[in-house]
Design a protein around this nucleic acid. Structure first.
Lengths: 132, 132
DNA sequence: TTATTTGTTATATAACAACTATAACAAATA
DNA sequence: TATTTGTTATAGTTGTTATATAACAAATAA
């Protein structure tokens, strides 16, 4: 999988990396068992520091998406390691609320706002840029 | 309107203020024409610096929610100043995508994800904490 | 007019986060 | 034993957040 980052983005590099991997899993381009590039190799490929990649991998491990063992690189976990349980849904809902509130403030109703998200989901599934 | 902030939150103070005002408009507790507390008064009430409040007000002005004139305090704009136009919907969709991607990665489908957002919208509308 | 209020701007400082640079340690493999 | 690779440690730079003072500009009140 090819991962790209945007040095001009307001989003932190390590966050872009986290998003890229989650995105890859969401689209099915990254499958359980697949090997990730080593922190050192990915850092060189992207022209960034090893620690920035390492921080992203640590977060992805903590979220359950990756496993890592010394000298073996990182590997994508089985789907059972990152399920959409109630706790996850609650936290995601809270994270999204500021955005949802802005939609409501601008006159959209619950269904319109939900539709926007459904569109976003469909766009993600059809997305192919940034991966290979 | 009473605005509360959480000094222990990971969210920046000025962002919490922005969110509070948007939230107030979304729930109808803040209506067009309503006067906001002065930057100095709100800063004192919350026990934070004047500049932190000023930064939040500047962002809210830029987004169209507030107007401010010297010696007159800030006022909530008419709804026509902050509509959900196409540009807004596009940007919101992009902002939400990382969260949506995480839902998809965890096996939720477009409809389930959209439902989660509909729930969030309904919860916001029923929310009464933090305002008066 | 003069004084006051209030948004705005300008510095300066401290604390923290993000990123980088080096280096070293620990476990698995060749 | 040497190499690879995840991990940890330390330190420095830069940008952001928040604070503290101070001053300026426009509107209002006395």
């Amino acid at each position: 999988m090819i991962i790209k980052i945007d040095m001009n983005s307001e989003t932190a590099l390590y966050e872009q990396l986290v998003n890229s991997v989650v995105w890859g899993i969401a689209t099915g381009r990254l499958k359980p068992g697949e090997k990730m590039p080593t922190v050192r190799k990915l850092a060189v490929d992207l022209g960034i520091n090893l620690h920035t990649v390492n921080k992203a991998y640590a977060i992805l491990k903590q979220k359950g998406y990756l496993s890592a063992h010394r000298n073996m690189g990182a590997v994508v976990n089985e789907a059972s390691a990152y399920t959409a349980d109630e706790a996850f849904k609650e936290s995601i809902k809270e994270w999204m609320k500021p955005f949802v509130a802005e939609c409501l403030a601008r006159g959209m109703d619950s269904d319109e706002t939900a539709s926007l998200v459904r569109e976003a989901a469909l766009e993600i599934k059809n997305e192919t840029e940034g991966f290979a």
